Simulated scan of single mutants.
Amino acid sequence: MPRVSEQHLAARRRQIVDAARRCFLREGFHRTTMQDVIAEAGLSVGAVYRYFPSKADLIRAIAEEAVGGAEAVLGELARREPPVPLLEALDSALAYVDSQAGDDGLLRIAIQVWGEAQRDPALGEFVAGKYARVRGHFEILVRRAQRTGEVPADADPEAVAAALFALVPGWFLQRILTGGPDRETYLAGVRTLLSLSPPPPVPPTRG
């Protein structure tokens, strides 16, 4: 029997993952069965189970794609020379998110992954690790921005990175739930917030 090529294996796996994503987008994780995915993929039961022994394995593969793209984008930005300004890095992250915001994009799957991660401890641990790495890339960007003077040297890089990271899901939740704002409007608002001066100290009250 001729050996199956790696390209063929990868294409078959891609076929199954794409079929599962369509099913999950249509029916959600819980209402979708493995039989639904098998029918959608147009493959035999054995062919699908060879790659994904359970629905949980399929959900994990989908979760990998939903989070992995943003991780790759930020990882590349964190290595770029000269260091990327933080707003430019945020814009690149949002541009990737924007590319996945359609009806068949990964963002709607990402929201399902969040919900499933609260129920499935193994998936929750996987997602937490992925998002920790995304936040870690933001921290690298912040530390590099401290060296260029963009961020004060005495700022806490972990705190700044956590705030920057939160801006990404904050935007795409608004996009999905309300239809806006667009990326340019959102970035303009972030730019304004970052330029605000700290409030003056409150004078002590006299007793």
Rank of each mutant, 00 (worst) to 15 (best):
R144Q: 14
I176E: 09
S54I: 07
G136S: 13
A188D: 08
T32E: 03
Q7S: 11
P83E: 08
R108Q: 06
A122S: 08
E71T: 11
V113N: 07
A145D: 04
E81M: 09
V48I: 11
G129W: 14
E64D: 10
D103S: 13
F165I: 00
A63Y: 12
V84L: 10
R147V: 01
A145F: 08
E158F: 15
G75C: 09
R31W: 11
I16A: 10
L123S: 01
D156R: 14
L86W: 11
Q112R: 14
E40P: 00
R143E: 06
L58W: 08
Q112C: 02
V97W: 02
V134Y: 14
H137Y: 15
L106W: 15
H30M: 08
T32C: 09
V190P: 01
G28F: 06
G102Q: 04
K130T: 02
C23K: 07
V73C: 07
A56F: 05
L77F: 12
A78T: 04
P204V: 10
L177C: 05
H30Q: 13
A117Y: 00
R26F: 01
T33C: 06
I62V: 14
L141I: 05
A70I: 14
R135L: 09
R206M: 11
R143W: 09
V97K: 11
P181W: 02
A153I: 01
